[in-house]
Design a protein around this nucleic acid. Sequence first.
DNA 1: TCGTATTGCTTCGAATTCGAAGCAGTAAGG
DNA 2: CCTTACTGCTTCGAATTCGAAGCAATACGA
Lengths: 170, 170
Amino acid sequence: MDQPASLDPTELGAYFALIEVSSLLRHTVEQQLKDDGDLSYVQFQLLARLGDSPDGSSRMTDLADGVVYSRSGLTYQAQLLERRGLVTRVPGRDDERSVTVTLTDAGRGVLADVFPGHIAVVRALLVDPLSRDELQSLAGVLGQLRDSMRASPPRSAAPRLRTPPHARGS
Amino acid sequence: MDQPASLDPTELGAYFALIEVSSLLRHTVEQQLKDDGDLSYVQFQLLARLGDSPDGSSRMTDLADGVVYSRSGLTYQAQLLERRGLVTRVPGRDDERSVTVTLTDAGRGVLADVFPGHIAVVRALLVDPLSRDELQSLAGVLGQLRDSMRASPPRSAAPRLRTPPHARGS
DNA sequence: TCGTATTGCTTCGAATTCGAAGCAGTAAGG
DNA sequence: CCTTACTGCTTCGAATTCGAAGCAATACGA
């Protein structure tokens, strides 16, 4: 509760580097996906997640949980994918209000088109610049962070410390 | 040139964890900034960058270079900030076509309002869950990645390996 | 069983984003 | 000096994003 008001250089460095690295990586990946398969990053994430599933299908909600994404945005993207014939959407069998999204053969095809380039980008930007030890260290620390972030609901991240706004509009 | 077609678990783990961690962190920070100062993340980045500058001002282009952002998007956000009185925009002195953006006192005020909560979020999500060694390791590896990414223009990231698209629309 | 709350998804409107095109101002070549 | 290319920024239109509200199906309490 009595921590210094700012962050020390190491802390700041980790934060800024994380933001910048992920931003640049994502940018590059997005470009590659658009070039190779006309997919947005989110669309690729959805297809890839479906491809991982044993039967190539999943409920909307389960898809949303994996991809940090609003429900309405997911609906929008699923519509686009369906329009292109990459997935099908049918009402769930046991629960009439849920929607089951399923990867089509065309969807698997696009995924196959896009994968090699995707891997090449990740390799070029993330894997190759690091030694094996560094990569393992990175994976370990980030995995730990991911677990701790998942564990705590985002709501309680910064519960206190709120300063009264200075000059809010209106 | 003859690397395996896929990524091994460590490589995949680092990649996925990086994406997920940065995404969650960014989401949480965005929420905090909106709550405490009605700022988007980009707006905060712009204000913070100006705050770092000795005279609190900077050219549009220099701002864009720091924040991964399109020029038109920067113009849009700068307009919003100017409308709220957080920055001023005046034509550059020596080069008539450039625009110098300057932080106002109100801008500094909002920055001050927002900072404590911002630091609290970063601390809670990124710093506190890790040991000092882990944090240093993370900062080191990410810094290395950032440098290597900066060095190579994104264009050449995946120059080869392009598979002919499978079923492109139209 | 009935009434109410909850869940899963979609629709709607507003805000943000980007790329392409446009518009000065500046530099370079003759 | 004039023409041409380039730079810095803005405007424009289209696409994407989100939150709030809406709708249908399901779960729950009495």
